[in-house]
Design a protein around this nucleic acid. Sequence first.
DNA 1: CATCAACCCTGAGAGC
DNA 2: TGCTCTCAGGGTTGAT
Length: 271
Amino acid sequence: MPELPEVETIVRSLRADANIIGKTIINSQVLWQRSLAVPLPDVFQQQIKGQKILAVDRRGKFIVIHLTRQYLLIHLRMSGDIFVETGDASRNNKHDRVILEFSDGSRLAFNDTRKFGRVWLVDDPESVFGKLGLEPLEESLTEQCFFEMLGRSKRQIKPLLLDQTFLSGLGNIYTDESLFIAGIHPSTPAYLIPIDKAADLLKAIRAVLLEGIKRNGASIDWVYRGGDFQNHFKVYQRGGEPCYTCGTTIERTTLGQRSTHFCPRCQPRIA
DNA sequence: CATCAACCCTGAGAGC
DNA sequence: TGCTCTCAGGGTTGAT
């Protein structure tokens, strides 16, 4: 499930390895209509034709492809992936949903097994980003600012961190790992987190995200991109196993409809 | 405002 | 072997 580090890894790869910047789109295929959020397929195909890729970026978990006249936005959700290839590919293309063909003969495929992912072709990306929260790695997000943000919410910290209008880019893996490193129980009401713990949490979020990026993301489920962060999880998917720090059995529960993993000893509830 | 459930989907893995 | 069932989860929507 791509979160910020996985999306960042893909974006960097599109820039450096696949070299898609500068390519001109001469044709497109929409193989699954609902993968296209907007516009309708015939309009999409007509509008994207002839546009050149000027830049590739990331906002939260969105891949942002800056074209000559518009923006192509891609959200991978659970099982989405991007492939750029030349000629015949031996890759399993069964779940290709949208394909862009370039003037040099190469092509970009948006592949998405479970069809949760979406592609937008829009004039203004902000119309899609809506109320996305700050980027967690953004320097303008200070510890004091983060503490004040927590103070404004009575929600449990884990679902709050997953809310993309609070911070953009965190998903289930990095949230559980961050809360473990900061030593905060996932069901702690946000406004009860003291300023020193808030600072610990922001540092933990950044450390975990940077480690994920450094390791090229996590490759789990059937989405494999070469990353190896999955081999460094401290709590995620470790329910029933001993905590590396204290040996206590890692617990697994459900919070906000998401599986949640934590060490009950290292992450005590606030009394 | 916070919480909860349903929904969108496929395929892996468990159980029989 | 092969069937059926459960589960995984990011985000949206609608109800409580």
